[in-house]
Every structure is written in C-alpha cells, then in structure tokens.
C-alpha cells in the first residue's frame, strides 16, 4: 500500500484526481481516499496532526505486507521559484532539533533539499532550507511502520521572499497539479521498492492454511515462517506443498518435511 499524506485538501486534490481515488465514508477521524494499492489521507495542518494521521492509518493497514509513504505538500523557501518540486533529503524539527533522513532509494532527477518543520507559521525565510509544518511529524510516525527507503517527502514551493501563495487554496492545487507527472514518477519508483519488500512476505491465506494443519509452538512457528518464506520465494506452489503436508499430523513432522525440501533445493545454491 502506498499512502499519500497531505495536510490540506487543496494539496491532496490533484493526487486524488490523478489516481481516481474514492472517498471512504466508513471513517470519520480523517478524510481518506482509496484506490488500487494506494490511499490518500488528509491530516490537517501541523506536525502533530500529521503524526497522528500516520499512526492511525498505519494501524488500519496492519495486514498490508509493506507500507510506502509520500508526504506531499507545499513549503516556503527564500529564493526558489514558486512551483519548484523538491524531494526532501533531511528533515529537521525546529522545536526539538531532531534530524531525520529519508533514504534516497528511488533514482530521481528531482532537486533535493533539506526541510525545517516549524510549529507555527513563519515568514522568516532561510537560505539553505525549505520550511513547512508537517514533515517532521510525518516522518517521526511513518518510520515506526516502514523503513526510511519507503518514506519520502515531496515539497512544492508556494512561498518565497517575493511571492506568497500558500494561503490561496486554488493556487496551491494548481502548483501541485503542474507537477503531477513528476510526482507520479516518484510514486512509481517508490511503489516498485514497496513491491520488492511485499513480495518477500508470506501471503496471509497460505500461512493460515499452514497453521491449521497442526498445533505449532511459538518456536516452531518461527522456524515454519523461515521455511515457508524460503519455499514461497523459490516459487514452490503453496497449494501443492499444503497437500503434501496434509499427510503429516504433527508440527515436528511438518517442519522436518519442509526442511528436507529446503535442504534439497538449496544444494544447487
């Protein structure tokens, strides 16, 4: 699942339209829009709102094999042109001084920048960093559920010393919309990484079927998980294996059978 995290509807709108996400009417805590392997959550302004929304949505996605995150929003900068899109490579929380580093795992031609997250709005422009109000809360929370490679922040300049458009919602949407193709390319790269991670996990249905064959202690479950992940990733057909294992009625016999299959398979390297 790729999760878009936006503070405002005007930032999320172009993403919702581009991917044709549909509003969920089942939840009330946050506005959430769903699509295929993707959702967008509108968090409200500020790092606390962003952190709370990330934790809330991650808990609702706990059955997903892997979560990838993009925090998309506008930011201020001293000199950069309005509408410029940046991938953030360092996030500093202005209040705590804590730094976070989204890992640069997606190959990109986008410009990179640091971003300082403020607790209150400011028009004090700094030369060497963008500033926003959500990124540190977003990453603090998202890193509890995903690795730094799957946690990205994209910022579009809405304000600089010469022009301020951050409070004009329609203009903000236009700025995001103008970058939607670049944003999509970044998202596609992140989805590919997410799929690499998810593909290594055990499908929930075959795991449940396996567990139903016998009573496994926690230690046996741990061993079983290693063996099942290996064989699943070596393209052994899970239903064929399950049929073979059905003849055994003890946990140790099932594990011994899977070990023998693994040992034979792995001898070729």
């Amino acid at each position: 699942m790729l999760i878009w995290v936006c503070a405002l509807h005007c930032e999320a709108g172009p993403v919702i339209d581009y991917y044709r996400l549909k509003k969920s009417h089942e939840v009330r805590a946050f506005d959430v829009y769903h699509g295929d392997d993707m959702l967008c959550i509108v968090t409200g302004i500020g790092k606390l709102a962003s952190a709370a929304a990330c934790a809330w949505v991650a808990a609702r996605c706990e059955r997903e094999a892997a979560l990838a995150w993009i925090n998309l929003g506008v930011a201020g900068a001293a000199e950069h042109e309005l509408g410029t899109l940046f991938v953030i490579n360092k996030i500093v929380d202005a209040e705590t001084g804590q730094s976070y580093y989204p890992a640069p795992a997606v190959t990109t031609s986008l410009a990179a920048s640091a971003c300082l997250t403020l607790s209150l709005p400011s028009d004090e422009y700094r030369e060497d960093t963008l500033f926003d109000m959500e990124a540190s809360g977003f990453i603090y929370s998202a890193l509890r559920f995903s690795s730094a490679e799957l946690t990205q922040s994209l910022k579009i300049i809405s304000d600089n010393r010469r022009q301020q458009t951050g409070k004009n919602r329609q203009r903000v949407s236009e700025l995001v919309q103008a970058q939607i193709e670049s944003i999509d390319r970044q998202a596609a790269g992140l989805l590919r990484l997410k799929q690499q991670v998810a593909a290594l996990e055990i499908p929930a249905d075959s795991w449940q079927q396996l567990l139903s064959l016998a009573h496994f202690s926690q230690t046996q479950r741990n061993r079983l998980r290693v063996l099942w992940r290996y064989l699943g990733n070596r393209e052994f057909e899970s239903q064929a294996l399950l049929r073979q294992l059905a003849a055994h009625n003890t946990a140790s016999a099932i594990i011994a059978t899977l070990e023998q299959i693994s040992y034979r398979d792995s001898e070729e390297l």
Binding site: K90, S99, Y101, A105, L143, S146, E149
Partner: peptide
C-alpha cells in the same frame, strides 16, 4: 551528487528503520 550535511555519521548510519537490501541498490 546531492550533498547533505550531518552532525555525526551515526545519525544516518545507525537508525533501525532502514532496509539494507533496498539501500544496497543505491547506497550513499
């Protein structure tokens, strides 16, 4: 290459929420 200033290498190198396998594809 993009350049990021840090205080100590451990800030980037040591945090737990990293995936060695993914990072190895494009290490810094």
């Amino acid at each position: 290459l993009p350049l990021v200033e840090i205080d100590h290498y451990g800030e980037v190198f040591n945090p737990r929420a990293q995936n060695f396998r993914l990072q190895k594809q494009n290490p810094a």
